[in-house]
Amino acid sequence: MNRYASTTATNAREAAEWSTGRIIRSNLRAVIGRAYPRVIGLTREPSWLFFEIFLPFLAVSAFVFVYRALEAPEAYVGFVVLGGAMTAFWLNVVWMMAAQFYWEKDQGNLELYFTAPMHLMSILAGMAIGGLVMTSSRALAVIGIGSLLFGVTYDIQQPFLLAGVFLLTMVPLYGMGMLFASLFLLWGREAFHLAQLLQEPIYFLGGVNFPLRALGPVAGVVMATLPLGVGLDAMRQLVFADSGVAGVLPVGTEVLILAVMGVVFIVAARLALGYLETLARREGRLTLRWQ
């Protein structure tokens, strides 16, 4: 076997036939491969600790002080802390996944991804997992430091259910991110604006800083569309069981909604990525920069 070789196939057609197992293994390797630069980047440029952890914590604190100025019950401080922690995951979805293909196209990496055999969802998953280290650190910092500094107390009566709700929230959240990744590829230069649009408006609709019930009928819309809002509402009911502030729906119902959302968003993401890849290839957008 020559030094370049990595296959025993005797011709191209034979080399192109991959078993299902090989396809799955390859895609899993692609996830790890794409996560790698994200993780290694954290060790090589530690300024993220200041910009991605400390400063966002200060921003969350601002809303705590608003409630203090309004002389709100202490439970609301807990709401802000938990909401602030969850925004870390949302920002990971928006900036580290949804907008990422657009940035990759600019850097010339997108065409390399498209000519490689792994599925784009593997690349997106790798980006998300790679960003999770930073995201989780940020969330834990907000919760940990916030709880200590602001004296937040928790009343968690069903910890396993809480963990399950959290994980169940992540699935449609990241599915949504994958869906947005394909939309961002389609909408091109509006990617930055779209990413901006998906922050404060989503915080508002998702009840990041206040109980979702306060939105009244709009909360129903959220229940149907926003995994962040649904998940946060369920988690608040589980984390602050004695707060006296009711959720929009019972936790069980919200868990069901999250499960359905998970399936819907993952399937929609897969279909959208396939459709939009075809569209991008037809219109020549995959390599057109500054579009």
Partner: peptide, 26 residues
């Protein structure tokens, strides 16, 4: 004439990352 790649990775790491995209075992 292109500038693709991830600047913070070493040359070796960059190649390894792409080897994973092609499904090569670690």
């Amino acid at each position: 004439g292109e500038q693709s790649g991830y600047g913070l990775l070493t040359a070796r790491e960059q190649l390894w990352m792409f080897s994973q995209f092609y499904g090569l075992p670690n």
